[in-house]
Structures are given as C-alpha cells and as structure tokens.
C-alpha cells in the first residue's frame, strides 16, 4: 500500500493511538497481577480453592463457596434464559401477528438497554419481597437467577435473531416445499442451521451473567456460603469485590484482586469461545 510522505506523520499518530487502545487490556492484566502478587506469592493460588472459608483477616482465603455461587447463579440464568430468549426470537420471526412482531422486538431491544443497577433496584424492591412471601428471606440464589435471566435474555434473543437471519432463504423454501410443519421447519432445519451463532450468543450471555455485579449484589443476599437450595442467600465473586473493596487492605485487598483475575479468566474463556463460534462480535 502506498504511503506518501505527507501521510507519514498521520500514520504514526494513528498507529500510536491503536497501540494505546490495544495496550489497555495488557495494562489491566499487569496491574491485576501486580496487586495480587503479594498474596499469591505468600499463600499460593491453590489455597484460594482449598481453604475452608472466606476470612481474609485470619488468612483464610477460601473462594470456593463464592465460586460455586457464581457458577450456580450464572448457569441457572443461562438455563432459564436460553429457552425464553430463543422463544422470543422465534415469536417475532414466525409466530407473532404482524402488528405485534415489531413492537415485541423493540421491547426486547429496550430490555437490553436497561442498566444493571435498575434491574437490581427493581429486584430488591419487588422481586425479593415477592419471593420472601413464599420462602424467606427472599434475597436468594433464585432472585439472582431470575434477575440475571431478564438481563441476559435479550442478548440470547438478539444474537439468535442475527444467526437466524443469516440462514439462507432456500432452506426455508425447501422445507416448505416438503410440506413440513412450522415446528418441524424450526426444530429440524432452522435451529440446526443457525446452531453456531446461537451457541455463540448463549456463551456470550453466560459471560455477561458471570461478570455481572450490581444486579446480583442487590438481590442475592450476599451470605458467603455454598448454595444448597434455590432459596439460600449467596454471594458471588463480583459482589464480594464490590462489597469489600471499600475497606480491604493488605492481603485482604490483594486477595480481592486474585478473585478479579479469576473472574476475568472465567469470562474470557467463555468470550473467546463465543467469538470463535462466530456468534457475533463481543460488543455492539
């Protein structure tokens, strides 16, 4: 590509900017490592999984209960949100009457734009008392799952919609020509054809669920324990950071950065596999 001399300064400025933009990720990793290094060096990574409890002031760094809680709330939300999100997409594409399809789709897009703190507020003031009426205390794994479900459902619906839109038209015509019913067309032809994109979207939604802080923090009760029932209050890794960062010092603070690293690892594995599946870019 030609680079005339007058463009050279411009290209240098652009390249420096791009390097800075790309370096932010590196900087994040570096500083997380730097901050967690004291405690990692002293007690090792393994004790974060094997210690029997989270009492960082007494040098007991067991993150396991919060890791389980994070996974439980994340997986639970994905399990509920996947069928609902797919159904929402199929509804707008094939089942909704014409006048309803567009408003419904707009509604899902709107849902995607609501900030997590608002979901948290609503969950705390409406959903938690509602659950508490059946099974106190209300602030629980279940509340976390439900709130996260509403939050990640649009992600699943919108990525699935894009994946379905990419299925070639002649698949549909072919299926119709064979006289397949609507359900057979969807289950037998469309969903398999769009499988990669849909799976990518689900992984993306899972990454979002595991990385979510505010909404879960506000509704899940924040008791450090391994959940044994849907109505147990739980504390996730993200909530733990948000709750304790304000006063943590020394090894306690360092161990919060360890949990940040762990979280980032978890989310990145999911996000990378999502983008490998071609389920759309991570952003946008």
């Amino acid at each position: 590509m030609s680079r005339s001399r007058t463009d050279q300064p411009l290209i240098s400025v652009l390249a420096i900017s791009a390097v800075i933009a790309a370096a932010i990720l590196l900087l994040i990793l570096l500083f997380l490592l730097r901050e967690s290094w004291p405690v990692l060096n002293k007690v090792g990574i393994l004790r974060f999984f094997t210690d029997d409890g989270w009492y960082p002031l007494e040098a007991r760094f067991g993150l396991a209960p919060m890791l389980w809680a994070t996974l439980a709330v994340g997986i639970g939300a994905v399990l509920v949100a996947t069928p609902l999100g797919l159904a929402a997409t199929l509804f707008t594409r094939f089942y909704a009457p014409r006048w309803l399809a567009l408003p419904f789709q707009r509604m899902v897009a709107l849902l995607a734009g609501i900030p997590s703190v608002v979901f948290g507020l609503w969950g705390l003031t409406v959903l938690v008392p509602f659950i508490a009426a059946f099974e106190p205390p209300g602030a629980s794994l279940l509340a976390g799952i439900l709130i996260l479900t509403i939050m990640i459902l649009p992600t699943i619906a919108l990525t699935a919609d894009a994946a379905l839109a990419a299925v070639p038209e002649h698949y549909l015509r072919g299926s119709a020509a064979l006289g397949f019913s609507r359900a057979t067309t969807i289950l037998g032809v469309l969903l398999p054809a769009a499988k990669a994109g849909i799976t990518g979207g689900i992984l993306l939604a899972a990454a979002r669920a595991l990385g979510e802080t505010m909404a879960v923090l506000m509704v899940a009760g924040n008791v450090v324990q391994t959940p044994t029932s849907l109505f147990d209050p739980i504390r996730t890794l993200t909530a733990n950071i948000a709750l304790e960062m304000a006063y943590a010092t020394g090894d306690h603070r360092a161990s919060l950065f360890v949990s940040g690293l762990m979280l980032m690892g978890l989310v990145l594995v999911l996000a990378m596999s999502a983008s490998r599946l071609g389920g759309g870019r991570l952003h946008g």
Binding site: I24, E212, L263, M264, L268
Partner: peptide
C-alpha cells in the same frame, strides 16, 4: 485485544 476488552467484567 479490543474484542477481549469488551468482554472484561
């Protein structure tokens, strides 16, 4: 790197 950055919690 930007894709990964977008996924950071």
């Amino acid at each position: 790197s930007l894709d990964v950055l977008a996924g950071v919690p």
